[in-house]
Design a protein around this nucleic acid. Structure first.
Ligand SMILES: [Zn+2]
Ligand SMILES: [Zn+2]
Ligand SMILES: [Zn+2]
Ligand SMILES: [Zn+2]
Lengths: 155, 155
DNA sequence: CTAGTTACTGTTATAATATATCAGTAATTC
DNA sequence: GAATTACTGATATATTATAACAGTAACTAG
């Protein structure tokens, strides 16, 4: 869901980083300083962020950052489910439930740019049903709905 | 739906071109030789095709083709609904019902590359329902499901 | 039918997104 | 502590898409 106005985003970030640390420990993979930092950058907002935007920020900190630097970190985070890729935007957004097995759906606001991750069972079932009808075996779903979030709608 | 084995694709193309001609006449827009040809190229298969793939074919015919040549034609066709863009592939595929108002969903086979356009009402309703719950006003949907089509499944 | 206008195409340049490859460094294993 | 594996640095290049301006074709009005 989209965040309310009083939303304490500092908490969001701290919580996400904790979840990431724990998940990596559990999986026995290394959340290096670089990877951790990239994840933090992504979590600066609830708006999907592009790889080169991230790269620009990285470059202002460590001048040797190059595209592979950022794409490696992104791929690591994607594989763990710590972030998701929004195909229609070529952008990346944090996931706050990376430990659970979930099919994701995104509502993306063209007003403020925010993306809300949903996991709606009805939608999920509808996809399973239509796939079954088509005798299609599903591997991956990319469900991205663009429009206006409650905050951005002119009433 | 995915095409059956005996599928007569020549007919597909002819029918699609006829529909396109009619639609353009109806809308009072010009289906120029270039645009028509690009559409025909896209209809060569039921597999989404990339802009630069199309450009390469165009180049072999008229050696002055450049990226804008193809992207202009693609945008024209997209605006009329004669083709759809598959966001997760950066590729384009023909639509055989451009005259109807339809929300599209794609099943994309990672085996053969074919894309089947679906217009499932249950799925559509599920999206409307979850959008309503989120007080989100929908403008555009990108529903792309990747997996294996019936022909490509190892049984 | 011709001048004026609009729409389409040609052409060059560049932006935005992503990957390949090889070399060096840090961490883990035994 | 040497061997191995994983991570990062660095350079080059691939892929997808748009900007900008000039020339040509088609349509419109008188
Ligand atoms: Zn937050
Ligand atoms: Zn918004
Ligand atoms: Zn066909
Ligand atoms: Zn297939």
């Amino acid at each position: 869901m989209f965040q309310k106005n009083g939303h304490n985003h500092g908490r969001c970030i701290i919580s996400a980083m904790k979840i990431a640390t724990d998940l990596c420990a559990e999986r026995g993979v290394r959340l290096t300083a670089l990877r951790s930092h990239v994840l933090e950058l992504i979590w600066q907002s609830h708006q999907p962020v592009g790889a080169y935007e991230l790269l620009d920020i990285l470059k202002s900190e460590r001048r040797n950052a190059q595209p592979p630097t950022i794409y490696r970190a992104l791929n690591f985070l994607l594989n763990l489910g710590l972030i998701h890729r929004i195909e229609s935007l070529n952008a990346y957004v944090g996931c706050d439930t990376p430990h659970t097995n979930h099919n994701t759906q995104f509502l993306i606001c063209s007003g403020c740019g925010a993306a809300a991750e949903i996991s709606d069972v009805r939608l999920d079932k509808a996809i399973n049903a239509l796939a079954k009808d088509a005798k299609f075996s599903v591997k991956h779903r990319s469900i991205e709905v663009e429009g206006q979030c409650p905050n951005c709608q002119v009433s």
